[in-house]
Design a protein around this nucleic acid. Sequence first.
DNA 1: CAATGTACTTACCAACTGGTAAGGAGTCAA
DNA 2: TTGACTCCTTACCAGTTGGTAAGTACATTG
Lengths: 202, 202
Amino acid sequence: MATTTRDQFIATAQHLFADKGFYGVSIAAIGAEMGLTKQALLHHFGSKEKLYGEVLQRISRELMASTQEIVESTPDPVGRLTELVLAQYRLLVSEPDAARLIMRELLDNEDRANVAANWYLQDYLETLVETALAVPALRRIGRARALAVVYQFLGAAHYFAVSRPTLTRMFGAATFREARDHYEGELGELIRRRLVPAAKPQ
Amino acid sequence: MATTTRDQFIATAQHLFADKGFYGVSIAAIGAEMGLTKQALLHHFGSKEKLYGEVLQRISRELMASTQEIVESTPDPVGRLTELVLAQYRLLVSEPDAARLIMRELLDNEDRANVAANWYLQDYLETLVETALAVPALRRIGRARALAVVYQFLGAAHYFAVSRPTLTRMFGAATFREARDHYEGELGELIRRRLVPAAKPQ
DNA sequence: CAATGTACTTACCAACTGGTAAGGAGTCAA
DNA sequence: TTGACTCCTTACCAGTTGGTAAGTACATTG
């Protein structure tokens, strides 16, 4: 409970930036959300961009942590690849603000602070590709094509993690919840089927 | 070539909005991009939001067009579902600005003008789900779970359509191009494997 | 030629943007 | 009790935001 004002700023900013994007949120609005003035924010972080950078860095660290752990504990490539994606999915779904922010970084294509998020994503993708190339069914596929395969897994995970508001509006809360409850299992199924050797040539 | 100023405004705005988001682009900037003042823009559209709405509407119409056509021409559910996703993928990849804008709409969760994009997406998803439920391997799966399955396909497609800048920066233009060249084929493979009846219980 | 309409301009506005400067209130150590 | 430090404030700034008002330049039409 001993969250410092500084940490609260980061948390509040993460939520607002996820909601409206970097340009959509003013530092005054972030301050107001906490009952403070924007100068309190500037006192702690110096500038809006630096605050944004810290938000991104915190998210990156979180998302990177699980990867290393799985790599070390799961030697079998199929299991490792599956678990790498599913763990990432769980993280993104459990922190939708983080998921949306990363997605925005993917879109923004500006030089701003997105280096932080990209470092994480690059490391993560690199690991996925390497693992994919160790899967028997994918061994002779080549790096670029392996990237295509794992990117589909990641897309299926990340896209859903970002879609709750829209899907809820479209299909209602109950249907969304049911879909969400099945999503991880279905994602596992999708991956498993793709990693299995091709069926006999009909 | 007889593009009116109005159409040019929509095209320019689409590109800039895709790049920086609604709040990241000023109407003055859109005008300047065309060598005009922002009042020229206001003359044609009345307000920034209305322009944004028109951009979204145009994209929605484009993306909706292919769907109906495929539904009518492809009776087999597996083929139809596959083609619905692949056609959407092709469209999104061939118009990355549109893809990025739709993705932003997915994130924004504001009431602004995103109704336009959501109408398209809802119709499209509804069609996907219906088709999925007609696939033998998915028949007894339930609506919500079918939504989960097709959403994975869409995620795999849309996510990649949005990622060129980032992937290029990370892996270089050559690797990206190679991955892109394989992506549609791999996406088809992913879908096919998921729609086939489950393998014999190991 | 006058009238009307379209496509644009300059001039202006209040509100807000991120950021600087300076100071107040509290704590803590010498 | 004095000085220094942290955390926050009010006051202020120049630049930008979306938008209004009013006019200019130019066709089209009567």
